[in-house]
Design a protein around this nucleic acid. Structure first.
Lengths: 326, 326
DNA sequence: CTGTTAGCGCTTTCAA
DNA sequence: TTGAAAGCGCTAACAG
């Protein structure tokens, strides 16, 4: 037997569907007797409202779409945890969609969200805002996380520049002068911002050697190998993320260097491993970001919140063994 | 201006909504000219089909609900990655819902999935199947992951017993005889299965001392402290998960024991840290589980798959430094 | 091949 | 306070 519908409940209770709807949604104008009968019938039939039909009628789905790139581990799970916490508390569900490198698939994924969600939380560091908004169903409120440039909706942004600048000052204060930056992939906004912030905070007269990386561990190790082969001398390395920093760390030690004795090493992200390896890094609270993102989106959806604006998320420099002065 | 609907497209193209629907869904019986006009109009108006309305009409949402407990890090992200990969490939979205300890909230979360999803992937190691199916909207296909006992739908299960048994044999083969098991929380199915599998594979005459834990790092350390305080002597520790094993490892070393010299340590899960700490453990491919779960559910939804049945997911023993023989 | 029309299950005017 | 009925946007008979 198919699931009970509102009509079944109405028939069972001997009232109209309108009354059932009103009773179940707690509207004021329902006679107590009617309400009781409806509630009893609903329970008897095991009635559960059909969310899809409800959405269509209300033009509200109580769901928010989450569109993310291929994130890994802690990063992804913490972000989701934050989103889920905030969304759940306000009665919203989360609909997931990975944004693939493939533009068509990505666009497809975004389009199919129309009619399924009330708004979007999007993280797409590698897609420029114009392209992004072109893909989006119009009139869908959106909060972007770490997206380059301004967009229609609100945006949250890790303050990459400030964080990288703090790291620069940290290294300088420790007396390092010949500094290397292992950069992230070109076209990645986070990577670019970290580079700019770091370079900008280095006082005049400091050497900054930049070598390319792609956020992977091997690329961090490769960067070090390149430098050593070139005979470059340096006493500090700041990688655009922890994973590369870890690669660099291992390459340095494999080459017989002492860290932090000969060379200091720092990363960005504070992945769980950083703690165990004693890597100095920048901590980003992804949970907070998720919570803020969902909260701002829902505020906007419910008219509670302010309009578009950019919110910078603060970070913390976590000083550990790899940059300690002996 | 509101989003364009199918009616707007029909008007613009000078055809009926039925033709628009047919053209857009690629049905055969549409005149090429008509199709072209419809496509052009749709493009001109920036029309995107309303998924919600479509679902209501088709009684299919193309979404699957994912109900999980509070998972952390790699575990969660890998599972989601697997689910997303399989679901995405078959054109399904993922709707998330955390299952809270609070029974009412959990039930609420499950109920509100009716009409939003075509089926459910549920992981609830701490809820017994009867209670679970009572909470579920009837007639919603379901695949459970690591749930105790049989359920209506299909189920996937990490083969905890076989894995733990393999670990027992591994330790025995290394010559350990006075063995400790740090158990997981009571009532947790994984924990129970690991315990049973491990104990069952120990040959007669072997000592097995079991001490309670709760899957957290401090509880692993506390277990060791308890043993030491009691003056228990042992030469191997198998913790019901890696996190506790890591806690135990640290407590042992802090107490001056050499691992694996004095005591061997092993865990379960193969979290990323295990690799770096050289912890012997059991690897579970969460990605595979996710993929299998989504695939089986969708097969069932589309009538491709077989009915209820239990599938065991194999694991691999990863031998590392903490159980090495010198 | 195409248009008309009746739903999908729910909410919400509008009258009574 | 209640019920009848008109949609929400789309698909799917059923006729033409």
């Amino acid at each position: 037997m198919a699931d009970a519908t509102i009509r079944d409940v109405a028939r069972h209770a001997g009232v109209s569907v309108a009354s059932v709807s009103r009773a179940l949604n707690g509207l004021a104008s329902v006679h107590p007797d009617t309400r009781d009968r409806v509630l009893a019938s609903a329970a008897a039939l095991g009635y559960v409202p059909h969310a899809g039909a409800r959405s269509l009628s209300l033009a509200r789905t109580q769901a928010i779409g989450v569109v993310l790139p291929d994130l890994h581990g802690e990063f992804f799970s913490e972000l989701m945890r934050g989103l889920d916490r905030a969304a759940g508390a306000r009665g919203y569900h989360l609909l997931l969609s990975n944004i693939h490198a493939d533009r068509n698939r990505a666009e497809q994924a975004l389009r199919t969200m129309r009619g399924r969600v009330d708004g979007l939380v999007v993280m797409a560091p590698h897609i420029d805002p114009a392209a992004l908004s072109a893909m989006l169903p119009a009139r869908l409120p959106i909060v972007t996380i770490n997206s380059p440039g301004a967009m229609a909706g609100a945006s949250l942004c890790v303050d990459n520049r400030a964080a990288a600048a703090a790291m620069a000052r940290h290294l300088v204060a420790r007396g390092h002068r010949r500094i290397v930056h292992i950069a992230g992939p070109e076209g990645n906004n986070d990577a670019r911002e970290r580079h700019i912030g770091f370079a900008g905070a280095l006082p005049d007269g400091y050497d900054l050697r930049v070598v390319a990386g792609d956020f992977t561990e091997p690329s961090g190790a490769a960067a070090i190998d390149t430098l050593l082969r070139d005979g470059t001398s340096f006493d500090a390395v700041f990688a655009a993320n922890d994973v590369m920093a870890i690669g660099a760390l291992q390459a340095l030690r494999a080459a017989g260097f002492s860290v932090p004795g000969d060379v200091a090493v720092a990363g960005f992200d504070d992945v769980p491993l950083a703690h165990y390896l004693g890597l100095t890094t920048i901590r980003v609270h992804m949970t907070d970001i998720g919570e803020r993102a969902a909260t701002r989106l829902i505020d906007a959806l419910e008219g509670t919140g302010s309009a578009a604006s950019e919110e910078k998320i603060a970070t913390a420099l976590v000083e550990r063994a790899t940059t300690a002065t002996e």
